[in-house]
Design a protein around this nucleic acid. Structure first.
Length: 491
RNA sequence: GUCUCCUUCGUCUAGUGGUUAGGACAGCGGGUUUUCAUCCCGCCAACAGGGGUUCGACUCCCCUAGGAGAUGCCA
């Protein structure tokens, strides 16, 4: 049988990183096994629907470079791929189940159910849940009530005795006592839309899904799904319930842990390469040694066998390491292209864009090793485009030096730039080395104040090439300003 | 409460009866270096606990504990 897998998000918000991982695993599994990967939009909850979310799903997939074989916009022979466009199908099939005595109409209101739960809790009952009070209503009576327009839902008639076997490729065979399954869940809501349970079964049957890789939060309803497949006399797909992604405190990853949506990471300056690599390693491994994988590697190497059962907590530091790695290995043109918007965002590229871009391109070689995220670029290279604050002595005088000394050093240093541009960086280094010696200074005592004045930070790219990029004019001007600040203070 | 799943360094993981329990991130120390990074070298650090099975358990079984998820006319 051909491998056919899908990503089936519900468009209710931004794509969560957990969902992204599910998409990635499905995609890689399809690629690695020569199968097909499609997108299905699960928009059966009208109250939570948000069409910006559909846009976000597509943007995220495009950002990651994941191509769909079929989907709402791509089309395909098993469409439509949006559940709200398939409601007739669900209705017909829930009716079929009713006709076969495998489902029934329930007339309980939300309030009824609420009261039921309260009562069960008050009684200290072993379990809460629907008490199946409409299960044995006379079908003819029920049909009459429906005909008269009474509001109702359709519930699945779950097996009461015995057990249901869920065959999970990761977890193995999970035998589930039927009494422990959520009692007779709603499969068709009163608004005529299906719940996930029905929609999943119907769609994955007709869309010929071979494997369902989904989050482990679905495991408790898996036996139900198996029963619904059986009720239709359809073959269920092979399930694979993926472990979840946790935050640093062991709880489900959420906003308070940091970024959680793909968009958050994109905006924060992460590369898709890093996200793909890191996320995939959250719950999957190759051989325990190799850690660097690009998309095209995973498209060949991914296997279900190396999936991990236990939940994984999200480590932002390790993600940063991957991101820095990919940032360093990016080709010059692309890196430049990605950094321009970051500089613009930071307000450093006002004026002649082309001129700025050229300077940025020249500066990249000395900056790229210092970047962990794209958004670090304005911090590392900002000094080339905007003058640092030279009005505050504490930003000019290194911690271990005193103001008067630094002032004197800077004054002397003003003369050090004659012929600077004619010398190589190495020659300039030697030049400053010599000067420091002549002036009875350690190299750092000369260079650190210069670094502070010219770059505005004690952690800058190498000084000689930085000065070259800055240009002598700005160098001299910054020096003069700093000296003035210090002089005002000494006076 | 009930049900289900999970449990190797702080974190991600390798390991499928016999290993000095391996790798990576982080941390720490050192080297390179004008700073910060990069890079290189080294160190620290784990089989949740208790019973079995076995000549031998991280590996198999049971129990306990802990964690998570589910328990919706949300997915």
């Amino acid at each position: 049988m051909k491998t056919r897998v899908r990503y089936a998000p519900s468009p209710t918000g931004l794509q969560h990183i957990g969902g992204v991982r599910t998409a990635l695993f499905n995609y890689f599994f399809a690629k690695a096994s020569g199968g097909e990967f499609f997108l299905r939009i699960e928009d059966t909850d009208q109250s939570r629907y948000d069409d910006r979310a559909v846009e976000d799903i597509y943007e995220t997939l495009a950002w990651l470079g994941i191509e769909l074989d079929e989907g709402p916009r791509e089309g395909g022979e098993f469409g439509p791929y949006v559940q709200s466009q398939r409601v007739e199908l669900y209705k017909t099939h829930s009716q079929k189940l009713v006709n076969d005595d495998k489902a029934y109409a329930c007339f309980c209101s939300s309030e009824d159910l609420e009261r039921m739960r309260e009562q069960q809790t008050a009684d200290g009952g072993a379990s809460t849940g629907y008490d199946r009070r409409c299960r044995d209503l006379d079908p003819n009576v029920a049909a009459g009530r429906i005909a008269s327009g009474e509001k109702h839902v359709i519930r699945f008639k779950g097996a009461l005795l015995g057990e249901t076997m869920v065959n999970d490729i990761l977890l193995g065979e999970v035998a589930w006592p039927n009494k422990n399954i959520n009692p007779d869940p709603v499969i068709l809501k009163s608004d005529g839309f299906p719940t996930y349970h029905l929609a999943h079964v119907v769609d994955d049957h007709f869309m010929q899904t071979s494997h369902v890789l989904r989050g482990q939060e679905w495991l408790p309803s898996a036996p139900l799904h198996v029963q619904i497949f059986e009720a239709f006399a359809w073959q269920a797909p092979i399930y694979c319930h993926l472990s979840m992604i946790m935050g640093s405190d062991g709880h489900k990853l959420s906003k308070r842990h940091g970024s959680t949506s793909a968009q958050d990471f994109r905006l924060a300056g992460y590369l898709p390469e890093a996200i793909i690599n890191y996320i995939t390693l959250l719950g999957w491994s190759f051989d325990g040694e190799r850690e660097l994988f690009e998309k095209q590697d995973l498209e060949k190497l991914f296997t279900l066998e190396k999936l991990s059962k236990s939940p994984a907590s999200f480590d932002y530091q390790k993600l940063d390491w991957f991101n820095a790695h990919y940032l360093r290995s990016l080709d010059h043109e692309r890196l430049c292209h990605l950094i321009v918007p970051e500089m613009q965002k930071a307000g450093l590229f006002a004026g002649n864009l082309t001129e700025h871009a050229i300077l940025l391109s020249q500066a990249l070689p000395i900056a790229r090793d210092r970047l962990h995220k794209l958004s670090d670029a304005p911090i590392v290279l900002g000094f080339l485009f905007a003058e640092p604050d030279l009005s505050k002595p504490e930003l000019i005088v290194p911690k271990k030096q005193n103001t008067a000394d630094v002032c004197a050093i800077l004054e002397k240093a003003q003369t050090a730039f004659v012929g600077f541009l004619d010398r190589s960086d190495e020659q300039n280094e030697a030049h400053f080395h010599q000067l420091a010696q002549d002036w009875g200074l350690k190299l750092g005592q000369l260079l650190m104040p210069l670094r502070l004045v010219l770059t505005g930070t004690s952690a800058s790219p190498p000084l000689m090439p930085s000065i070259r990029l800055l240009g002598l004019e700005k160098t001299t001007r910054r020096l003069a300003k700093a000296i003035q600040t210090l002089k005002d203070l000494v006076k």
